[in-house]
């Protein structure tokens, strides 16, 4: 197990370097001049040159990139061109919001998706199963941010059960923290719940048709016991793979949902970076999100190894 973790961690380093090189290349392909943007087009050439020097933009590209990577390895992602704040700190401040939102949405999606999937798998083709299939199709099609809008309209603006916008840190008031996340997380969870329900149903139907289920039944093991102790564990193996993908999707969706509820997450930071063409912020965010997704994949792989003995190295 340790070997697996270490080898995966090591192999994710080149991936991250590649990713940052990709973003870096993209950025440098474009003729944006931060000096002109920040100091104004009318600023003197000298001032602009001095500013570019200050940002290190007058050095050769490979040096700039090397500098950035060395910094990144030490946890220093550079400074924002606009606020001069360290990017690492800016991201650190906001990562918690995005992560808690994505995780909460995932938990909600699991709580809804897994039982619904089981329900469908127990009687494939039955009326509840068809209703479920329909609901899953709908859930997959409805855009999360639209749902967020509608939820905000109904529960926040009209019924006033939840705050319309804003975020309360967990450390300040856990109750308010939860209240500020419920609506956005629910809106995000619907799509993921649909994906998970669909996957759970499919995997469980396959599993229940497996010969070993028949074998267990031939030994007089009650169906409920087979379902809970055997079939579920085997059926969750393919579901786990989907969860990894969904986590990455959820992180992406937070960017949009954060905006609706004015939550100070990575998404808002990223949007500012995009609008202002603040390259250090942009590059830092992309790489951190990429690292996050890789980490999630690693965690899922480990979980995968725990449930599926075939891939577990011994």
């Amino acid at each position: 197990m340790k070997k697996l973790v270490v080898s995966r961690l090591i192999s994710s380093v080149p991936l991250l370097v590649l990713l940052s090189l990709f973003v870096f290349g993209l950025i440098n392909l474009t003729p944006t001049d931060p000096a002109a943007q920040i100091l104004g087009v009318g600023a003197g050439e000298d001032a602009k040159a001095a500013y570019r020097h200050q940002l290190g933009l007058d050095r050769p590209l490979h040096e700039q990139f090397g500098q950035w990577v060395l910094g990144a390895l030490r946890g220093d992602l550079g400074k924002s061109w606009f606020t001069a704040q360290p990017v690492t700190q800016m991201i650190g401040d906001r990562l918690g919001v995005t992560l808690s939102l994505a995780l909460l949405a995932l938990v909600l999606a699991l709580l809804a998706g897994v039982p619904l999937g089981i329900l469908g798998a127990l009687r494939p083709g039955s009326v509840p199963d068809r209703i479920l299939t329909l609901a899953v199709s709908l859930g997959l099609a409805v855009p999360g941010f639209w749902l967020a809008l509608l939820l905000a309209l109904l529960f926040a603006l009209t019924l006033r059960w939840f705050p319309v916008v804003g975020y309360t840190p967990f450390t300040e008031d856990p109750g308010e923290w939860a209240r500020s996340l419920v609506l956005p997380a629910t809106a995000m969870a619907v799509h993921t719940a649909a994906v998970i329900a669909r996957q759970t149903r499919g995997a469980l139907v396959d599993t229940l048709n497996a010969p070993y289920v028949q074998a267990l039944r031939s030994r007089g093991i009650p169906f409920r016991r087979i379902l809970l102790r055997y079939a579920m564990k085997n059926a969750m193996i393919p579901v786990l793979a989907v969860i990894a993908v969904q986590m990455s999707v959820l992180v992406g969706v937070t960017f949009v949902v954060e905006r609706i509820f004015a939550l100070p997450g990575i998404g808002t930071l990223l949007m500012d970076g995009v609008v202002q063409a603040d390259m250090p912020v942009l590059q830092g965010t992309v790489v951190v999100v990429g690292a996050l997704v890789l980490l999630i994949n690693l965690i899922t792989d480990i979980a995968y190894g725990v449930v599926n003995p075939k891939v577990r190295p011994r």
Partner: peptide, 10 residues
């Protein structure tokens, strides 16, 4: 490793 939306934003 990058969400599609993020790449489009970049």
């Amino acid at each position: 490793a990058v969400p599609a939306l993020l790449l489009a934003l970049a």
